[in-house]
Design a binder for these strands. Structure first.
Lengths: 341, 341
DNA sequence: TTGAAAGCGATACCAA
DNA sequence: TTGGTATCGCTTTCAA
């Protein structure tokens, strides 16, 4: 409580001197694994308390070559999907004695690169990464334990936690087909990563299996943004032959679609059927609630953190093949799809 | 590119050896402030590139006694208000060459305490803190540059970035009064912090000035949760003499109220007038849009980061009195308040 | 302009 | 059970 009056930081030396022991002994009680006599331990503990001494984790990290820090790198920090992943990771990390640095790359490859070059490679024990880069080379250069989340790059050399995008999109589209829809549109974005691509191919496969031919004029590709959802929904719904169903391939696109439908004074589940990918607040709120492909967002962060920490603690031997953990998605049917037959 | 084959990390020594210079010289080109001849600089740079050498910021931090790391400590990481603050801070920090550790205390005093004791006091240059503790003592014990955001504790000894909660609530309530409302309810939570208290007193003041007497049965105190908003709105709206207007004193309470109104099949702005505190997605979406007291969330993080970094860089002399920066709020009138007279 | 060497604050090995 | 000391990878005087 009555900390030193001087501004100088208290170090292990000060404690040792005060306690009339060597720094080695103080270090021992700090770490608690070597044995120290009860008497000296108590004495040292008391002095630590009195001096308000806090050991420098940095100095310790330097010799231990372990920082007990994780990094979570995300493309942006506003999207609830990413904050959910962050939340899951932070929670596990804290439980396991790790701190977490959160870095937003703003979806910018250059920024992402700078972070890795300047910092991450040396100062964290491991990385949970929702990457922005598209080429495997970038990922292979990362020498730290790393878990790729959501966006997986083959040949990256790292483990991944993903969801079954293909199946999610497939189930959604099949649901439309089962309910008799034929003019089924999809609004997505570039197919830079596996996730976007898989969703499209899941959609496509369900169409074909249902005896339908995917029509290019019902496939709208933007940049995965809310405004794309809005704009394309506007286009589609005001076309000569509008679709009867729209599959919104991510959460923000879905929000855009909902807004467009509202602005056109149409009724979801009546005038237009809709399925979104991933939960979003609006989808839960509108009447009827929007059917979505739900994915375990927070759980992805939890999984990633667990795998990462195990990897950090584990033998470096275990460098088997990178493994992908694929979490399951679930089609939550809430009534935004009209039965046509 | 062709990094060392051995697993050993490359250090400044390796670079020095390769370049036939001393480590001091390498350090000089790394930091760029001392003069080094052009020839040797180029030679060293080339070797750094070849060896793929990345200096250990930890070792540097140890001697410089500066980590270039900030911590943002928040009660939870799901609430969009907090992620907005984090986002603002992270952005400024990155621009200024700082990294950011994000820590969620889960609104738990013990967790908060542990973080400070075990880590923060030594390893970050400064802290942006949305605190959970209620007593000034806890804050006074923090010896690092710290900016308190949103929740301010007097006598804490730190600067703060807040908003004018009092005025926000006052304006909202006055708006109700001006439109002829007399039975005006408020749903809030405990008055542990200045923010909650101020909002209540702003409400109260506007009531009194309007010649109205705050009626305890129209003051519902929960725990600032969405479910409180829902539950209390249900109660209020089904009472014998329901209020004509509700002031929802934070963003999640407002969401709960909106849901309750919907579930009762009532019409916002018609059957019940509503004003929320702070933006929230639902409020923007329902028809009519809900009038809210808007606060500059991201801007709070930006401000805090700027003040913090200035403090870190500045003279330790400048320990004037702690200063509070109070950002302005604005009543955004969107039509959820009915004119009664 | 460059080099030698003394730290920074811990840990860990080897002796005692 | 304890102490002495080399060490981690870098920065920063002080000399050359």
């Amino acid at each position: 409580m009555d900390a030193a009056v001087t501004n100088k930081e208290i170090t292990i030396k000060d404690v040792a001197k005060q306690a009339n022991v060597s720094v080695a002994t103080v270090s021992r009680v700090l770490n608690g694994r070597d044995r120290v006599s009860d008497a000296t331990r108590k004495k040292i503990l008391k002095i630590i308390e009195e001096l308000n001494f806090v050991p420098s984790t940095m100095a310790a990290s330097m010799v231990k070559k372990k920082t007990n820090m994780l990094a979570v790198v995300v493309p942006e920090i506003q999207n609830p999907f990413y904050t959910a992943v962050i939340g899951g990771t932070v929670e596990i990390a804290n439980n396991e004695g790790f701190f977490t640095i959160v870095i937003s790359t703003n979806g910018n490859e250059t920024e992402e690169e700078e972070f890795f070059e300047s910092f991450l490679s040396k100062n964290v024990d491991g990385i949970v990464l929702i990457g922005t880069h598209r080429e495997a080379g970038f990922y292979r250069n990362i020498r730290k334990p790393t878990i790729l989340v959501d966006r997986y790059i083959n040949d990256s050399g790292h483990d991944g936690v993903l969801i079954d995008n293909y199946r999610g999109a497939y189930e959604a589209t099949k649901h439309f087909v089962d309910y008799g829809h034929e003019r089924i549109a999809i609004i997505d974005g570039e197919h830079d990563f596996n996730d976007g691509k898989d969703r499209y191919w899941g959609y496509r496969q369900a169409m074909l299996e249902g005896g339908l031919t995917p029509d290019p004029k019902y496939h709208k590709q933007g940049k995965w943004l809310e405004e794309d959802g809005y704009r394309f929904a506007m286009e589609l719904l005001q076309a000569e032959q509008p679709p009867t169903a729209i599959f919104a391939a991510n959460n923000v696109i879905c929000k855009g679609v909902i807004r467009a439908v509202r602005d056109l004074n149409l009724q979801i589940g009546e005038d237009i059927s809709l399925i979104g990918f991933d939960e979003n607040e609006l989808a839960q709120f509108v009447q009827p609630r929007v059917t979505v492909v739900a994915r375990p967002t927070r759980e992805m962060g939890v999984q990633a953190a667990e795998m990462l920490i195990q990897k950090i603690k584990g033998e470096p031997k275990e460098q088997a093949k990178p493994k992908k953990v694929i979490l399951d998605v679930e089609l939550m049917k809430y009534g935004s799809v009209k039965k046509l037959k």
